[in-house]
């Protein structure tokens, strides 16, 4: 049963992956086994994912990240929240981020 993303909690990159920025792409490289389905699989984020990723620093609750992005993109909190929760849920399901409390 996968855990659900909670806006009140703090999330940060997992030590099970190495996250690299190469040529403007965020590349997520599994470090331990069981992250990808295939032996040579790497992961990248789409444009929306990239914009959110840089703020997932393991220090602020997610709600603060949503507010910051809403201000920056001049968009309603609800739309931003949908993307932030969507991305983090994918990352959490893949063990690429961890709940830091």
């Amino acid at each position: 049963m996968s855990m659900k993303i909670d806006l009140g909690r703090v999330y940060g990159p997992s030590e099970d992956v190495v996250v690299r920025e190469i040529e403007g792409e965020i590349v997520i490289v599994p470090l331990v086994s069981g992250i990808g389905d295939l032996e040579d699989e790497l992961f990248t984020l789409n444009e929306t994912g990239r914009a959110i990723w840089s703020r997932i620093d393991g220090r602020r609750p997610l709600a603060a990240v949503v507010r910051e992005l809403a201000g920056e993109y001049n968009a309603p909190d609800g739309i931003i929240q949908e993307d932030v929760v969507g991305l983090l849920q994918e990352l959490l399901d893949r063990r690429m981020i961890v709940d830091r409390g």
């Binding site: 990808g36 295939l38 040579d40 699989e41 790497l42 993109y73 968009a75 931003i80 969507g86 990352l91």
Partner: peptide
């Protein structure tokens, strides 16, 4: 945000 939504994470067999 105005960018693309799901899936946010894309699998890429490296080197391809």
């Amino acid at each position: 945000m105005t960018g693309p939504g799901k899936p946010y994470v894309r699998k890429v067999p490296s080197g391809r």
